[in-house]
Amino acid sequence: MNAPATESSSQTAGILFIGYGNELRGDDGAGRRLVDRIESQKWDNVDTLSVGQLTPDLAARLANRSLVVFADALAAPGPRATVQVDPVKPVSSPARSHHCTPGTLLALAERLYRAAPVAAVITIPGQCFDWNENLSGRASANVQIALNAAEKMIQAWQVESID
C-alpha cells in the first residue's frame, strides 16, 4: 500500500528519514521525493519512511533512533526561500487532528517510548501545488540541494558519533 507507510527493511538502524506530503499535489510531495532518493541510494545505517502525513503512531518508529530527519515541502515560499535545515525540539502542544508536527511527534516518542533522538527538519521550498504528480523545476532543484545537505549532515553525524 502506498499511502499509509512504507518503510525500508531494517528496523534497528540509528538514523531515520521521514518524508511527508501529498504526492498528488505537485510540490507538496517534495519531502517524500527526497527520502525516495535516499532510499534508492541505500545509505548506510539509514532507514526511510515515506508517508502522506505525520500521525501519532509514527512515534513508535522513533524509538531507538539516534537521529531523526523530517523532510517536508514549504508551500508559498518567498522568492528567495531556500532549502533549510532546522533543529526540532519536542513540542508538547495539542495534536488536534490526524496530523502531527515533527515537534509533537518527537514529544510523543519521548513520553511514550523514552526515545530522545536528535532531530532536524529539512524544508524544501516548492512552487506549484496543483493536482499534478511532477515536481516543478524549482522544487526538483531544491530536492537536489536538500539531498546534498542531507548527505553532509549524515557524514558529519557519523564522524561525530565515532568521536
Binding site: 532518493r37 499534478n132 523545476g137 526538483s140 530536492v143
Partner: peptide
Amino acid sequence: AIDNGMEFVRFPYQH
C-alpha cells in the same frame, strides 16, 4: 535514470 544518477530535471516539464 537511476543507473546514471539522474538527480533531478532541470528543464521545465512540458505537460
